Computed example of a mutant assay.
Amino acid sequence: MVENRPGLRILAHLVLIAGVAIVALPVYIAFIASTHGPNDFLSGLIPLTPGGHGLENYRQMLTSGLASFGMPPLTPMLVNSLIMALSIAVGKIVISFLSAFAIVYFRFPLRQFCFWIIFVTLMLPVEVRIVPTFEVVANLGMLDSYAGLSIPLIASATATFLFRQFFLTVPDELLEAARIDGAGPLKFLRDVLLPLSRTNMAALFVILFIYGWNQYLWPLLVTTDPGYYTIVMGIKRMSEVADAEPQWNLVMATAMLAMLPPVLVVIFMQRLFVKGLVETEK
């Protein structure tokens, strides 16, 4: 039991406020920088108060981009990132859900071996298998496509493991009752396991959406067509310029726009996200 002492409460609030300030300060600076003109950064000092070019900067990046940087408008990039993130998140959840269901509720040879093979892939991140994966995608003709952006990343050992652990906690009486009622495996999956897994899916969706949205290396390799650029690639292209000084006001405006969709997903799914992480009883 935590003691209710005024001193500890004040200390806890101070620590929380300090943590929020450390996290929020870079975001605040990025927002302030996105509201200024390019000449406001020539002195080398970062302004700490809002400027008067905010709407102009955001409108320019969303509608026309920056041709001198080889930067197309951000709206198609945001759409590409959204399609990629949604495809990865939904694909990972569906495949992992079905994989865990097969491992837990079906009896077939080498069942545990298959699970451990899936689990061992946690030690092989994308960067390790990037070359053979790229060769497979290229041979299948999926370069410069949404399929090439998302399909190689939709398998998830982590989500499979989490669903498996949850399914193991489901009482066997539910399965027996479903069998007595004449329910087959798919009906049991749809009517029993799927409703019980709703909060777990929500928590995983938030994590996997952010994972897909923040991908940089894989989209950089499989896309050469500007029509398939993602927003993270756009930020990188703007911040690295060979013969010119980066226009930091526009770079920060791009960063703020890139930050907005993941933040909205977390805000709107916060209740289910927290419930899915902490809930132990269904």
Rank of each mutant, 00 (worst) to 15 (best):
S239P: 05
Q247T: 02
I235L: 14
W248D: 04
T230P: 13
L217M: 15
Y216Q: 10
L221D: 10
E240N: 11
K236N: 14
A242P: 09
T224W: 03
Q215C: 03
A244P: 05
V241N: 06
E240T: 12
V222R: 10
W248L: 01
A242I: 12
V222P: 08
M238D: 09
D243R: 12
W213C: 00
Q215R: 06
V251C: 09
L250G: 05
W248H: 03
V232R: 12
W248K: 01
G227K: 03
M233Q: 15
N249R: 03
L250D: 04
A244L: 12
N214E: 13
I231V: 13
Y216L: 14
R237A: 11
G212T: 09
G234M: 02
W248S: 02
M238C: 06
E240M: 09
L220H: 14
V222N: 09
K236Q: 14
N214R: 11
L250Y: 06
R237P: 01
V241T: 12
W248A: 01
N214Q: 13
I231R: 04
L217R: 10
L217P: 05
P246Y: 03
A242T: 14
P219E: 06
G234W: 01
P246L: 00
L220D: 13
A242H: 12
A244Y: 12
E245R: 15
W213G: 01
D225G: 05
I235Q: 11
A242F: 13
V251W: 07
T230C: 09
I231Y: 04
A242W: 12
W218I: 03
V251I: 15
P226M: 00
K236R: 14
Y228I: 02
L217K: 07
Q215V: 00
M238L: 14
Q215E: 14
P246K: 02
L250R: 08
A244Q: 15
D243P: 00
Y229T: 00
I231A: 13
W218P: 03
G227M: 06
V241F: 03
P226Q: 03
I231Q: 08
D243N: 14
P226G: 02
V222I: 14
N214G: 07
V241R: 06
Q247A: 02
G234D: 04
V232G: 09
Q215M: 06
W218L: 04
V251D: 09
D225T: 02
T223C: 10
M233T: 06
G212Y: 09
L217E: 13
D225H: 03
G227S: 04
G212M: 08
L217C: 07
V222D: 12
Y229I: 00
D243V: 04
D225E: 07
Y216H: 08
M238V: 05
P226N: 03
L250C: 05
Q215T: 01
V251E: 09
P219N: 08
